[in-house]
């Protein structure tokens, strides 16, 4: 530990912390066990870290660490397996749901999920996404939509907003020549194979709680063999949106959410009530 850190630690210890509060019986929130110690490689403020943590929390709360197999995509989350302490398979670009199908078909008793970005799931992997959902594979697809290719450096994604600038739409996305953003979550909600389709975000504490409930449901429905569960998380990309994390969350709320409104697109359990 360097000197500066120590100085500040002292400051922190002396001025603020009340030892009586920080006891194991008062502990209400800590990093889930299934999230490994490894520091995340994501840029500051990136939503990936939150969703990783949520998955780990749900796996811990359901006690299914031994029965869960995840599939990582190609994209920023390609290293998801470095952070989640569960067996994982790294898929080729766009093929995560096919890889997940292969795993689930031979291990039908296990919990299987894929974790994919917008380029992976809604551009190169559209075919696999649609057909996995159409067959109603009993697995959970977690779809992180930040409207941009993060890992390759900010190119236009299938979900980039109209008029939004990227390195390959430097003058803004022109829907006449580049097509309109693909609302693939709306598409898969139309398929009989999907059981639970929802769109959430993680930019505010209340939204984080909702996303966690959605992912929890996704795993629970999988246990009941209900069909494909699809959780879209509208997320941010401060680095490639060229914003601070706080600005990116504001952009998400002001620009992304009107185009990608939050809420359940398909939830049979709710209708029954």
């Amino acid at each position: 530990m360097n000197e500066k850190t120590m100085l500040d630690d002292d400051h922190y210890e002396n001025v603020i912390r009340e030892e009586s509060v920080c006891t194991s019986e008062n502990l209400v929130y800590e990093r889930p066990e299934t999230l490994l110690d490894t520091p995340l490689h994501y840029c500051p403020g990136c939503g990936h870290g939150v969703v990783h943590r949520i998955i780990a929390e749900v796996v811990d709360e359901l006690g299914i660490q031994e029965e869960t197999i995840g599939v990582a995509p190609v994209g920023c989350a390609v290293f998801a397996y470095n952070y989640l302490n569960i067996d994982m398979s790294e898929a080729a670009h766009g093929r995560a749901s096919a890889v997940a199908t292969g795993i689930k078909r031979v291990l039908p008793e296990k919990y299987v999920f894929s974790y994919q970005g917008d380029g992976d799931l809604a551009a190169i992997g559209t075919g696999e996404t649609i057909h996995t959902c159409n067959r109603g594979e009993n697995l959970l697809i977690i779809f992180i939509n930040n409207g941009i290719y993060g890992m390759t450096g900010g190119q236009m994604a299938p979900t980039t907003l109209p008029g939004m600038k990227s390195t390959t739409s430097p003058f803004g996305r022109d829907v006449k020549s580049m097509g309109a953003p693909l609302k693939i979550t709306d598409l898969v909600a139309q398929l009989p194979g999907t059981y639970y389709v929802t769109r959430q975000s993680v930019h505010k504490p209340a939204n984080v709680r909702k996303t966690k409930k959605a992912i929890l449901k996704g795993f629970q429905f999988q246990k009941e063999n209900k069909g494909t569960c699809f959780v879209e998380v509208v997320s941010n990309c401060p680095s490639n949106w060229k914003m601070t994390p706080l600005e990116s969350n504001k952009f998400l709320e002001d620009q992304m959410l009107p185009f990608y409104p939050l809420g359940d697109l398909k939830n049979p359990e709710r209708k029954e009530k």
Binding site: V15, I16, V28, Y29, R31, C46, V50
Partner: peptide
């Protein structure tokens, strides 16, 4: 860093933290 002694242990900071870097206690 935490600079005010007004924490209620509401977990908001921990929930939005992308790094899983906050532990929360509440009496």
């Amino acid at each position: 860093v935490k600079v005010e002694d007004t924490c209620t242990g509401c977990e908001s900071c921990a929930l939005v933290c992308p790094e899983g870097g906050v532990t929360v206690y509440r009496v």
